[in-house]
Design a protein around this nucleic acid. Structure first.
Lengths: 142, 142
DNA sequence: GTTTTAATTGAGAATCATTCTCAATTAGAA
DNA sequence: TTCTAATTGAGAATGATTCTCAATTAAAAC
């Protein structure tokens, strides 16, 4: 069982890219956030905590983290992309409350299986999927 | 069984909005397109076919069509929003080829049922959902 | 350790989809 | 026909993301 740091280093090496202090800080910050985040949230957290890293570097690093399967883009809202870290976490899908913005995670084995079956049917080779159900949560539905 | 035109007129009236020639043209063009489209595709088709309608008006009309459940935003890619008309069509989900961009539609009753069950479990009242599976299609997987 | 070279960085400019502004127009109720 | 609030187009503004480029640096090769 390797750490996310090891995994990122291996990824970078395999692509001939460098492991820089900036990339290390971004990676670590990402794994300190346990909710969805966008580039701005990440930028502000990093500026507050350690040294300043430019927005450009953050925007350049997010695709690397996505590519190496350490994070995942989970939704786009108001023109912003939201991510979450996935390394060490099982796959799950989302319920999104359109009123209060709450996100509820869930996992259902049967849905996963049905998706596999559908892919077979269409001779389709899946890499990943996104299932988002929008609606009103317990508190907001009344 | 009312037409999409009727449905749109009713929607507009219910909101105290006006049925303008521009909105009529946009609505009709949307129902002439039988694939996914973004605002730019729609704009170009309309300019080519009938009179010119400004991009601003198209951008203002798309939310009205979405709100009245005549169209639906199906995905966001490269920072653009893609739509499809849904009036008269059953709900379906998508397989998206990341290589050639092909979109395959599918519908699976069991997946729908499982989603309902999950919503019940979380006391969540769904309005709509999106399931997109990314991967490689038959032709591109080799 | 030093050299070498290609990758990386920050700052700000550029891009590009989308939204806003505002004066002129118009649908549709009265 | 009148009246008023909604609508339109043109272009400016916005805002997230990407690009540019000169200066810096990781890390491979010596």
């Amino acid at each position: 069982m390797i750490s996310y740091l090891e995994k990122f280093k291996e990824y970078l090496k395999s692509k001939g890219l460098k492991f820089t202090p900036e990339r290390k800080i971004i990676l670590e910050e990402v794994f300190l956030i346990h909710t969805h985040f966008d580039s701005e949230i990440l930028y502000k957290k990093i500026c507050g905590r350690t040294k300043k890293i430019s927005r450009a570097t953050i925007y350049r690093t997010l695709p690397l983290l996505t590519d190496s399967e350490l994070i995942k883009e989970v939704l786009q809202q108001n023109g912003r992309a939201y991510y979450e870290h996935i390394f060490g976490h099982g796959h799950h899908d989302h319920l999104l409350c359109v009123k209060c913005g709450r996100v509820i995670e869930f996992y259902n084995k049967n849905i996963e299986k049905l998706q596999e079956r559908i892919c077979n049917e269409y001779d389709f080779s899946p890499t990943d999927h996104k299932l988002g159900i929008r609606g009103y949560c317990k508190k907001c539905k009344k």
